[in-house]
């Protein structure tokens, strides 16, 4: 183990970690947005759009991110759509994450007991009112654990971005191994970088989960996601 080597090369990792974090953040926000929209479309049974969302969710859940990225990065330019690595990474992550988030929200919606809808109906509320005032607030609370699991899953998935020539953590590590043959140091820094990125997220998630558990209505079983 060569401390000097680690000190010399850690700036590369820091830079790559910031890049990973930035893309993950944008990707996760977009995924949550896409997931939310998809979920509302499915819940309100909007014709045509409903079928499109269903197809999208199945397509994105049943294919690996790596293949999606390759298609975006190497495939699309052949028919005239050229995207930068970073754009590919963000689009790929949002495409993948959107469906996972949609499923997370759906499981939350399903966990809201039917009696809630019925009570609201008997109070004379309209369909939209019931959805936005009664169902949604409860569903959001129940879907938090799955949402958190998805956030961790998506951050982990960013590790494949090196495949589309994005200088992320894995890319830096592989580069260092290739240049210097210092496998130990390079891999150690790689592991450390992911720990620094993900451990706080993981701890934060379990804290949030513990808090929102009080918000649940009754005792609902939550199917674990991703």
């Amino acid at each position: 183990m060569d401390i000097e080597f680690i000190r010399e090369n850690s700036p590369f990792y820091v830079e790559a970690a910031f890049l990973t974090a930035r893309i993950a953040l944008i990707g996760i926000l977009l995924s949550a947005g896409i997931g939310f929209v998809c979920c509302i479309i499915r819940e309100l049974r909007v014709p045509v759009l409903k079928q499109i969302t269903a197809a999208y969710i199945e397509l994105s859940r049943n294919t690996p991110l790596l293949v999606q990225l390759f298609f975006l990065y190497f495939g699309l330019p052949r028919i005239g759509i050229v995207l930068s690595s970073e754009a590919c990474a963000i689009i790929g992550l949002a495409f993948l994450g959107g469906s996972y988030m949609a499923e997370a929200f759906r499981s939350g919606l399903e966990a809201v007991p039917k009696s809630q809808t019925e009570s609201a109906m008997s109070l004379g509320m309209k369909r939209m009112q019931i959805f936005f005032r009664i169902i949604l607030p409860q569903a959001v609370a129940t879907s938090v654990p799955v949402f958190c699991a998805n956030v961790i899953f998506l951050i982990k998935e960013t590790s494949v971005f090196s495949a589309v020539a994005l200088a992320d953590l894995v890319f830096v590590a592989k580069d260092l191994i290739g240049i210097s043959y210092r496998t130990d140091e390079a891999l150690l820094m790689l592991v450390a970088a992911y720990l620094v990125l993900l451990l706080p997220v993981s701890v934060l998630c379990s804290l949030i989960e513990r808090r929102v558990r009080y918000a649940e209505f009754g005792n609902t079983g939550i199917v674990s996601g991703n």
Partner: peptide
């Protein structure tokens, strides 16, 4: 916490 790709690298190169 560890991405599978990192684990793969650890085993394959390590």
């Amino acid at each position: 916490i560890m991405p599978q790709l990192v684990l793969l690298f650890l085993v394959y190169f390590g």
